[in-house]
Amino acid sequence: KFGRVHERAEGPAKILAIGTATPFHWVDQSSYPDYYFRVTNSDHLVDLKEKFRRICNRTMISKRHMFLTEEILQKNPNLCSHNEPSFDVRQDILVSEIPKLGKEAVLMAIDEWAQPKSKITHLVFCTRSGVDMPGADYQLIKLLGLSPSVQRVMMYQQGCFAGGTMLRLAKDLAENNKGARVLVVCAESSAIGFRGPSEDHPDNLIAQALFGDGAAALIIGSDPKMGLERPIFEIVTTAQTFVPNGDCHLALHLREMGLTFHCTKDVPPTIAKNVESCLIKAFEPLGISDWNSIFWILHPGGNAIVDQVESTLGLEPNKLQATRNILREYGNLSSACVLFILDEIRKKSGREGLKTSGDGLDLGVLLSFGPGLTIETVVLR
């Protein structure tokens, strides 16, 4: 008597548009150690500064975009301390800036989509910054002038794996609601975790050397309108798992001094060791076991992770080039990073006149991972 209210779509979910945005301000990685130790009044920690310089040199990052300028840091000195309470200051900045950054990426996506924004039916927003109620999803709806009846899902504090999570959720929403057009937004800022150095917490140096700011937005829907919408990728399958006891290797915690970062040297080999089982589960039903026969979007948690995944799986050097390019130009953008790589690989395919948006290949994989050593596996066509 009370059956399904919403009719299912006929076809699989497809990515119809991609937009990205970054803050205008950026830092050069080669000179960042001098800048970082100067603005945090830590130049007296000579040995720690040299250690940080070595870490920065190993990241293979060229530059990173950041909202925090020297002027902002001078006005808010607690942000430059390692342990002073600064959460309220971070909140005041990020509750406002995260939706604005997301808006810039959304406008780029809508411009490519070339359809009225009134056709957006759902919003899925993800960030690890600016936790608030009502959330960044609500603020973004107002900034864009979208209908208050847009169906919203707000996900805070997920971390680097969440780019894949957003695709998984959007696929379910698009395929189970005929005519749905799902706006996916990942907006991230390193301002939540920026803090001064400490000899007692070397993990913090890794975070300060890796993370950048950026937002990515996608429009996802099934059954694209012929002649009006141009699909870029099809989302074939999605899956999530985590490595048992992985939280002892990688975890982040909200504290009075901001978001703290805990990471062990076992993260790269542990991820590399567990990736292939995810690939087998995803691609065995499709008859694929040659990992060089697919295109790759791999989250660059750090250069060591990229190198070890490449080595463990025997990947050809060009397979992870898009990942390395984004890491070099932006650093680790947390949940937004794989979506930047997705954009990079389709643009490169277009520039080179390849037959598909995925490096000329039919199928590919998007792998994202993060806290708890959670792994998201997304098969794309």
Rank of each mutant, 00 (worst) to 15 (best):
G246A: 14
T241E: 12
R53L: 01
M66R: 05
S349Y: 15
L101W: 09
N83C: 13
G350E: 15
D92R: 09
I326W: 05
K281S: 06
F87G: 13
L45S: 06
I305W: 06
G350L: 13
T22S: 03
S42R: 08
P285C: 15
K63M: 04
S31A: 04
N57Q: 03
F24E: 12
I72S: 09
Y35L: 14
P300E: 04
S277F: 04
P116C: 07
I18L: 03
I235E: 01
D111W: 05
N292E: 00
M108Y: 08
I345C: 02
E70W: 09
C80G: 10
N57P: 07
A304V: 07
I98T: 05
T241M: 12
T237A: 05
I120V: 12
S147I: 02
Q91M: 05
Y330R: 03
A105S: 05
Q240V: 11
S31G: 11
L327Q: 11
F52Q: 08
P12A: 10
S368N: 12
I288Y: 01
E284T: 13
V46Q: 02
E329F: 00
Q29I: 10
S349A: 05
P285D: 04
V243C: 09
L143A: 14
R8T: 04
H65I: 00
N325Y: 12
I280S: 08
F233Y: 12
I288G: 04
N76R: 11
L320G: 04
L73R: 07
F295W: 06
F24G: 10
V243N: 14
T69I: 06
Q321L: 10
V5F: 05
T241D: 08
D266F: 11
C337G: 15
E284V: 01
F283W: 04
L380C: 13
D137V: 10
F37S: 12
R8D: 05
L94V: 10
V124W: 05
Q115N: 08
L366N: 14
S30M: 09
E112A: 06
S335R: 02
W296H: 01
L48D: 00
S42I: 08
N332K: 10
E376M: 00
L143I: 14
A304T: 09
L250M: 11
V379K: 15
L313V: 02
H25F: 15
D247M: 05
L146P: 05
R53F: 08
V365G: 15
S81L: 12
R346Q: 00
S334I: 00
N292D: 10
S118C: 01
R38G: 09
I280E: 06
E276A: 10
D28Y: 03
N41R: 07
T127G: 07
K100V: 06
A9M: 06
R128P: 04
M60W: 01
R324F: 00
K348W: 00
V46C: 04
P317Y: 14
E310F: 02
S30E: 15
T237F: 02
G102Q: 02
T356L: 03
P300V: 01
G287E: 07
D92I: 01
L107S: 07
T377Q: 15
E97K: 05
S293Y: 10
F52C: 06
C248R: 12
D343F: 01
A21D: 07
N274F: 15
G145A: 14
D137Y: 05
H253D: 11
F340L: 10
D88E: 13
D307W: 03
L250Q: 15
L94G: 12
T20G: 06
A336D: 04
S368G: 14
G11F: 06
N332G: 06
T264I: 05
N83G: 13
L140Q: 02
T377Y: 01
P116S: 11
I98G: 06
K265D: 11
Q91P: 07
V306C: 15
T241C: 09
G372C: 00
S368A: 12
L279S: 04
P269F: 06
V243W: 09
R4W: 10
L363P: 15
G353S: 11
V5C: 09
L101D: 02
A322I: 13
I297V: 12
R53P: 01
D247Y: 07
S311I: 02
A239P: 03
K119G: 07
D247P: 08
A9I: 02
R324I: 08
L366G: 12
L380P: 15
C263D: 15
H122D: 05
N274C: 14
F67V: 13
I93K: 05
L367E: 13
P269E: 13
R4M: 15
V236E: 10
Q308W: 13
G302S: 14
P231D: 05
L373N: 15
L320P: 00
Y330N: 13
K348Q: 00
S334Q: 13
G302W: 13
L73I: 15
L94C: 09
Y330F: 06
A17T: 04
T238E: 08
F242L: 12
D137W: 02
L16W: 03
T312K: 06
H6A: 05
P148A: 12
Y35V: 02
H299A: 13
K51V: 10
L107H: 04
